[in-house]
Simulated assay, not measured.
Amino acid sequence: MSESGRNASEETADTMVERVHGGRPALWFLVKGNRILVAGAMLAAAYAVLVVLGEFGPGSIAKLFEPDPVFALFTPIIIGIIMGVSLVLTFNQLVLSEELGPLGDQRERMVEAMRFREDVEAAVGRNTSPPEPSVFLRGLVEATGERAEALIVALESEPGMGETARREIREYAEGLAADADRVAGDLEGQQFGQFEVVQSALEYNYSWKIYSGRRVRNRYESTLPAPVAEEFDGLLDILEFFGPAREHFKTLYFRWEIINISRALAYIALPALAVAAYMILVFETGDVAGTTAGIDHGLLVVGLGFAVGVTPFAIFLSYILRIVTVAKWTLAIGPFVLRETDRGNDVEWE
């Protein structure tokens, strides 16, 4: 069976929706959704669980009319907010400290960055590479698509090739070209700092493309005409540039997100502290006596105060959830597929 002709259940999926258990809802919660909205969803769930357990769980609502339970609930929240925000801000400084260093280190970083750009420019046949990450990645993806189309043209000019080799190479090239068009369209117009740039880079499953391309290339190496072999090698060379570029921009994006976490916590920390302090110093459950839909007002207000108090933690958790999920999906660089596959012996040594 050809490298690209097998059915979808046997192939590492190109799109993240197909890779994530739970489909679009899980993908939205893990990475795609606005982190503030995700934090709000988690807070709403926590508030609902607290109210339901307080109303229908074992125990007595009368405890709320005593000061000790409220004090015991909100005192750790105040301590947690202060310690948590301090810890995150300290971690943020450690991350940003990597941007500080002696002139020699900064110059070496600049030299390596320019060398990589020059290598990419030589590989794709362009004079100057763009400065924006999304445009840079789109150019690499488009270059792989162009090389794949050139490979198909080279196949057409070599009628003496074996039919099996021709079919497998064509299917590989056509699948890659179609996927490159899709990802390049997703990258167009995207601004770095938005998750859509990283998402589009993740959608381009370059690891499997390198593996399957090398497998086909090596399988028929002895019979490939020189023009076909040259186009094939050029395509694989450009694919190998995509991995380091994606990892570099992913690292920059992680730093960007950590800064966003710090800013969000700086905005919400003092209001959350104020609410927690109010619940300890001023609030009396008896002042909100009554029920709504059979639920005691004291439980509703205390639950709301709890939700506001843990808002910094929910925001932190929503951002970290995205960072660790993306990190898990991109642990390996190059032709290594860490996700569960359904290929059996199809990924063995040849």
Rank of each mutant, 00 (worst) to 15 (best):
R255Q: 12
G243F: 03
K63L: 13
A201D: 08
L103S: 09
V20G: 00
R126A: 07
N92P: 05
V135T: 11
Q190R: 15
Y253C: 06
N34C: 07
G54F: 06
K209H: 10
L94Y: 10
I295T: 05
L53Q: 15
D287Q: 04
G59N: 12
A274M: 11
I79T: 11
K328V: 04
R322A: 03
L50Q: 10
V198M: 12
E18T: 00
I61P: 08
V310A: 01
D181C: 02
P159I: 01
S60T: 15
Y47W: 15
A72N: 12
G213E: 01
V51Q: 14
V141T: 03
G298Q: 02
R126I: 01
L96G: 09
A62M: 12
R138N: 07
N34M: 03
G193I: 05
G59M: 12
N218T: 03
P102C: 00
F254Y: 13
H248T: 09
A26M: 09
S134W: 00
S129A: 09
M279D: 01
I258V: 13
A276H: 00
A293S: 01
I82L: 15
I238F: 12
M279C: 04
A26T: 08
V120Q: 00
I333W: 13
T311I: 00
L235M: 15
E348Y: 04
Q190L: 12
F242I: 15
V135E: 10
E188H: 12
G101M: 02
E149P: 00
A154E: 03
T223I: 05
F116H: 13
M114H: 15
R215L: 07
